[in-house]
């Protein structure tokens, strides 16, 4: 999923100051799962902002809404009837959702309530960890199902570096050394010979190297 974290309240309060009627829009997808921008978080943030501005003597009028997805035009339409009654949208979606709101509703300012972080997985309740950088040319098949690009601090395709200590990364002992994980998994699979195949210098074009990317499926295109 795409993971995100709420921005500091101070920053949100600052950007809402010029406005009175706010549409606080959550998203029912990834940011719900990582407890950053779902219906519940919309409720909590709405209460917090409401209380703050009320205390300041400048009460807001906050409308809460949570869409199935903010990154699809079909769902975004649900915002349309609200738009002439609000001064600004505070989106609790990831950066994709925020941009789609901005693209669809050109006249209304939209602010991000979250900082979008990474594509990751939940390691345990309350913790999400990075798993993928969308390089566009997956190498997981030759690295035992552990991604060296997103999980090695130096992005080494032929690791580990000399800083791997007891399975941990030199950058931070909370980070597992990706190459230790890769090696352990290759051993478990009986595929240790894969380790000595040097992975070639990566072609970054399928990643960000060739500019912003698009996927076009002719069979589905309208």
């Amino acid at each position: 999923m795409i993971t995100a974290e709420r921005k500091p309240l101070e920053e949100l309060i600052e950007c809402l100051k010029p406005y009175r009627r706010i549409l606080l829009a959550g998203c029912n997808e990834c940011v719900t799962v990582c407890a950053a921008g779902g219906r519940k978080e919309v409720g909590i943030l709405s209460s917090a902002l409401n209380m703050h501005f009320m205390k300041e003597g400048k009460p807001l009028e906050i409308k809460e809404i949570t869409l199935e997805r903010q990154c699809d035009p079909e769902y975004l339409e649900q915002l349309a009837p609200q738009m002439d009654q609000v001064d600004a949208v505070l989106s609790m979606a990831c950066g994709c959702g925020v941009q789609e709101v901005a693209r669809r509703f050109k006249e209304t300012p939209v602010f991000p309530a979250l900082n979008t972080k990474f594509m990751g997985a939940s390691e345990r309740p309350g913790m999400w960890a990075e798993r993928c950088q969308g390089c566009g040319d997956c190498v997981l098949g030759s690295t035992g199902g552990v991604c060296p690009i997103s999980r090695c601090s130096k992005q080494l395709l032929n690791g580990p570096c000399g800083g791997s200590t007891l399975g941990k990364c030199e950058v931070n002992p909370d980070i597992d050394c990706a190459w230790q994980l890769i090696w352990d998994r290759l051993k478990a699979l009986g595929k240790t010979e894969l380790y000595e195949e040097n992975l070639p210098a990566k072609d970054w074009r399928p990643g960000r190297g060739a500019g912003p990317r698009k996927i076009l499926r002719e069979d589905l295109a309208s």
Binding site: G162, L166, Q180
Partner: peptide
């Protein structure tokens, strides 16, 4: 670095 972990990979990394 012959001293980093995992030790069993250190010769293999040189081989690479």
């Amino acid at each position: 670095n012959p001293f980093a972990d995992p030790f069993e990979l250190r010769v293999a990394r040189l081989a690479k």
